[in-house]
Each structure stands twice: as C-alpha cells, then as structure tokens.
C-alpha cells in the first residue's frame, strides 16, 4: 500500500511551491522592519511585541474567535439533523439536495449579505443576532455537505442489520451513525471555523459597523496602512493560535475514534 503514497508527490510539490514558499515570504515580512511593500532584511521582533503590548489586538482576536466558534456550533446544531435526514433520502434525491445546497454558494456573498440587510431591516433584532444569521447562513452549506458526505452511502446494510438485531433508531444512531460521522464533523468544523475566524464582511455589513475583527485588522494593515510587516505578524499569530486549538479538537477526534 505504500506505493499509493507516491500519488501525492505532485501535490507535495504544489504545496511547497504555492503554499509554503508564499508563507515563508509572509514570515520574512513579519520578522523584518517596514518598507512599504519592499522586503528589507533588518530583522526585528517588534511587530510581535507591538501586537502583544496592546490589549486591543488581543481583544479583537478573541472577539473573532468567539464569533467563529459560535457560528461553528450553530452550524453543527442546524446542519447535523439536515445531513442526517438527507442521508435517508433515496440516492438521486440526495444528489439533488447537495446541488440545491451548493447553488446559492455561486451567488456572490456580498450580494446575499446585502439581501439579508434588506430582509432583516424589517425585524427588530439585536445586531449580534443579525451577525449570526448572516454568518450561519454563509457557512451552513459547507457543514451540511461535509457531514452528509461522511454518512451518505454509509452501509445501509449496517443500519438494516442494526434494526434487524432489534436496535431502535436512537440506539442505531448512537452506536453506528454518530461515530461514523465524526470525521465529517471535523471536516465541517475545519471548513467553517477556520475561514470564519478571519471573515469580516458579513459582521461589518450586518452588525452596523459594531464589529472590528481580526480579518478586518489584517486587511487594514496590509492595504490602508501599507504596513505588510505588521499585517503579516498578526496573521501568523492568528494562525498559530488556531492551529493550537485545532490540535485540541483533533485529540478529541482521536479519542472518539478509539473510544
């Protein structure tokens, strides 16, 4: 089976070139002194100390993490039953459902958010509620599709066998479906939580400008201020904190699989 690993060589080359190399440059920017768009080789840690010396930046990061986390939780709560029910449909209808879920993703996110702005104006909602409606809306299809993919085509025989053996629906769910869907949930969390941390357009448009988020901050420093060095540092700090928290989730996954 080792020979199969060779299949990923083209991809390894690809990520070395297009993901790792650009990230090394971002790292170099984060570790050097500013020079409007130019890379200078005056190494410094001041971009990092600037971040940690000002409580504002940490607060912004934690607000972003909180919003992303809650968005992810809502997406699981709403998306899991949907994926489960989808999986019990006849196969062709399942495909149709997946397509129905993806079609709206092809309409520009900004347009849909403007539409939500118009719709929600008719309701008296807290700005936080509006933000979560918009965020969950944007990310829900990813979660549903990920979970559904993991449990779709799951051995129907397995379920039938469980029924035949006298297990009720609830027991079958707990013992068979749920464990099998865990990798799907993890994938869903990755696809929702990671981009949600750095997204800011939806909270900005629906929250009435009440939200300063980390993605916004990074973009401001990259574009408005032209300070690529500090912008790079913020994005690296964010990435490290997220990776640490994802490791924790992975541990849970492993425990769930082994347990």
């Amino acid at each position: 089976m080792k020979s199969f690993f060779r299949m990923s060589y083209p991809y390894l080359l690809w990520i070395a070139l297009f993901i790792v190399a650009p990230m090394i440059m971002i790292l170099l920017y984060a570790l050097t002194r500013s020079g409007n768009g130019l890379l200078t080789f005056q190494f410094t840690l001041e971009n990092f100390t600037k971040f940690f010396n000002d409580a504002t930046f940490m607060r912004v990061l934690f607000t972003s993490l909180r919003i992303a986390l809650l968005t992810t939780v809502f997406c699981i709560l709403i998306g899991y039953p949907a994926a489960l029910f989808m999986a019990s449909l006849p196969e062709r209808k399942q495909t149709t459902m997946v397509l129905l879920l993806t079609l709206p993703m092809w309409i520009n996110m900004l347009l849909k958010t403007y539409a939500w702005r118009g719709i929600l104006m008719n309701f008296d909602l807290e700005s936080e509620a509006r933000v979560f409606i918009g965020m969950v809306y944007d990310f829900l299809p990813y979660m549903i599709i990920q979970i559904h993919t993991a449990i779709a085509k799951m051995d129907r025989d397995l379920l039938t066998a469980a029924y035949d053996l006298g297990a009720n629906r609830w027991k079958t769910f707990l013992k068979v479906t749920l464990p099998l869907s865990v990798p799907g949930i993890i994938s869903g969390i990755t696809l929702v939580f990671l981009p949600a941390v750095s997204s800011f357009v939806i909270p900005k448009l629906l929250g009435g400008g009440d939200y300063v988020l980390i993605g916004n901050l990074i973009e401001i420093y990259f574009l408005n201020a032209g300070d690529w060095n500090f912008g790079s540092a913020i994005s690296l700090i964010m990435a490290l904190i997220i990776i640490a928290s994802m490791w924790a989730t992975k541990k849970l996954d492993r425990n769930a699989q082994e347990g």
Partner: peptide, 11 residues
Amino acid sequence: NNLPVMNPDIV
C-alpha cells in the same frame, strides 16, 4: 493544507 483555508484572503 489548512493554511489557505485559515489565512485571511489578503494574506
């Protein structure tokens, strides 16, 4: 592999 998913688009 997760980096492009996690990084803000601007990065």
